[in-house]
């Protein structure tokens, strides 16, 4: 069975069962939901809150279905044994050895764009080729891109990859299947996950779900939701039973939204223009005035001398 067929069958099956309300806020039914991939929570509600993805590192079984579903859907050729994000792999499972109470254990961690709530890349892009959709995805429009790569420099998670070998290179990264979201479908990766390790939903609901899991299993989980506050908050959230730094996450990421760092200065530009303009005109007028006065004085002196 090809991956494409797999996806279509899956989508078809889910459409049939979509009338079941899977997400219930405050929810007694939440644990049951965890093992099941989510459908779009009622698209027609007036809730304009962003969608998000929660990945529970403890539940990943290294089947790589998310990785392969993404490659198949977007026609990428990364293959099974991907070791890093690349133009041919927008998401991949990294398997790491971790030390758990002196025992070496494996953990599988999904990597992809975090889709920041206030993305550094989008604020960095000089032409608006990157932007945040209201529904959550951080999207890239290649035809606008000039290739300055400031987005790559700016990204606090080091996500965007460049087509270095191409003669007309573009930036590549996960786009959270924004077209599918528009059609009321969830991303192919979360739809493909059989173990409930990576799940799709509204962000606040997923945060609640994550908090509940941390609370219910305080000894199992590290009491931290990665992405809740990192870089000012992200749409992709993680929970784990081993320290995040051990599974390849940077713990030194700022909690402040990155665009704010730039905007602190950028917002002052009109004031700088007015202030420097006025002081330059003032300085010039003063210089002119001084030369005139000195000139007149000089002339006076000259006149006296000749008299």
């Amino acid at each position: 069975m090809k991956w494409g067929d797999f996806m279509n069958r899956r989508e078809f099956l889910k459409l049939g069962g979509s009338s079941i309300a899977i997400l219930t806020v405050g929810g007694k039914s939440l644990p049951a939901m965890a093992s099941e991939p989510l459908d779009l929570p009622n698209v027609n509600d007036n809730n304009t809150e962003q969608y998000a993805v929660l990945t529970d590192v403890t539940k990943c079984v290294e089947c790589k279905m998310c990785q392969m579903a993404c490659q198949s859907y977007y026609g990428l050729n990364g293959g099974q044994n991907v070791e890093d994000l690349s133009p041919e792999a927008w998401t991949f499972i990294r398997t790491v050895e971790v030390d758990v109470n002196g025992k070496q254990e494996k953990r599988n961690v999904r990597n992809q764009c975090f889709h920041c709530l206030e993305p550094a890349c989008a604020s960095a892009c000089p032409v608006g080729a990157l932007y945040k959709e209201e529904s959550g995805p951080v999207v890239y429009e290649g035809w606008k891109c000039i290739g300055c790569r400031y987005c790559m420099t700016a990204c606090p998670f080091g996500i965007p990859r460049y087509e270095w070998d191409s003669k007309a290179p573009l930036v590549t990264k996960c786009i959270m299947c924004f077209q599918r979201l528009k059609n009321g479908q969830q991303p192919v990766c979360t739809a493909a996950c059989p173990s409930g390790a990576t799940t799709f939903g509204k962000r606040s609901q997923l945060v609640e779900l994550a908090q509940k899991r941390l609370k219910d299993n305080p000894t199992k989980y590290i009491q931290h939701i990665y992405g809740l506050h990192e870089a000012g908050g992200t749409s992709f959230l993680y929970i784990s039973d081993v320290p995040f730094k051990d599974i390849g996450f940077r713990e030194d990421v700022t909690k402040r939204a990155l665009p704010d760092y730039t905007w602190d200065t950028m917002s002052k530009i009109p004031a700088i223009v007015v202030a420097s303009g006025l002081s330059l005109v003032g300085a010039y007028s003063w210089t002119k005035f001084k030369t005139r006065v000195e000139g007149e004085r000089g002339e006076d002196n000259g006149n006296k001398d000749t008299e």
């Binding site: 892009c125 300055c148 665009p259 905007w263």
Partner: peptide, 22 residues
């Protein structure tokens, strides 16, 4: 630039939040 032929884009595609735009 990866796409040097598009260097003029900032003239028409405005993004005043970007330091690179400035």
């Amino acid at each position: 630039l990866g796409q040097p032929w598009d260097i003029w884009h900032p003239v028409v595609m405005w993004q005043p939040h970007s330091a690179m735009f400035e």
